Amino acid sequence: MSAPLRLILFDVDGTLVDSQATIVAAMRAAFGAAGLETPARSELMSGVGLSLPVLMKALVPEQDDRTVNRLVAGYKEAYHDIRLSQGSAHSPLYPGARALLENLNGSPELLLGVATGKSKRGLDALIEAHGLERMFVTRQVADHHPSKPHPSMIDTARAETGVARDDTIMIGDTSFDMQMASAAGVAGIGVTWGYHHRSALEPARNVVEDFAQLADVLNTFRAVNHG
Rank of each mutant, 00 (worst) to 15 (best):
H90N: 13
V17P: 03
G113F: 02
V141E: 12
T156W: 09
P53A: 07
M56N: 06
L9D: 02
A157T: 01
M153F: 00
D216A: 15
S88H: 00
V224Y: 01
Q140I: 04
Q63T: 05
E109R: 11
R134Q: 09
A183E: 07
S147W: 05
H196L: 00
A21N: 10
A3P: 14
K120H: 14
P61C: 12
A223Y: 08
D210H: 11
G162L: 02
L93N: 06
L50N: 06
L5E: 13
T156L: 09
M180V: 03
V114R: 03
A97Y: 01
V208I: 04
L112D: 11
N105H: 15
L201S: 13
A97R: 05
E43L: 07
D11R: 04
A142F: 04
R70L: 06
R139C: 14
S182Y: 10
G227H: 10
T138Q: 10
A30H: 07
A204L: 03
I127Q: 11
E77S: 15
A215S: 15
P95V: 00
D64W: 04
R6Y: 01
M1L: 13
L100F: 10
Y75K: 04
G172A: 05
A73F: 02
H196C: 12
V24T: 03
A33N: 13
F176S: 09
G87I: 00
S119D: 04
D210M: 01
D173Y: 09
S91F: 02
Q20C: 12
E133Y: 09
A212C: 07
P146F: 05
D11F: 01
G131N: 02
L52F: 09
N103Q: 15
A142C: 11
G87L: 06
G47K: 08
R70C: 05
L214D: 09
A26M: 08
G194F: 00
A164F: 06
R139T: 14
T67F: 01
Q63I: 00
A78P: 01
D177R: 13
D65Y: 07
I189C: 04
A34V: 05
A183Q: 10
A129H: 06
D166A: 13
T38P: 05
E209L: 08
R98K: 14
P203K: 11
K120V: 03
M153A: 11
A223V: 12
P108H: 04
L126S: 08
H150D: 15
G113V: 00
N206G: 04
L7H: 13
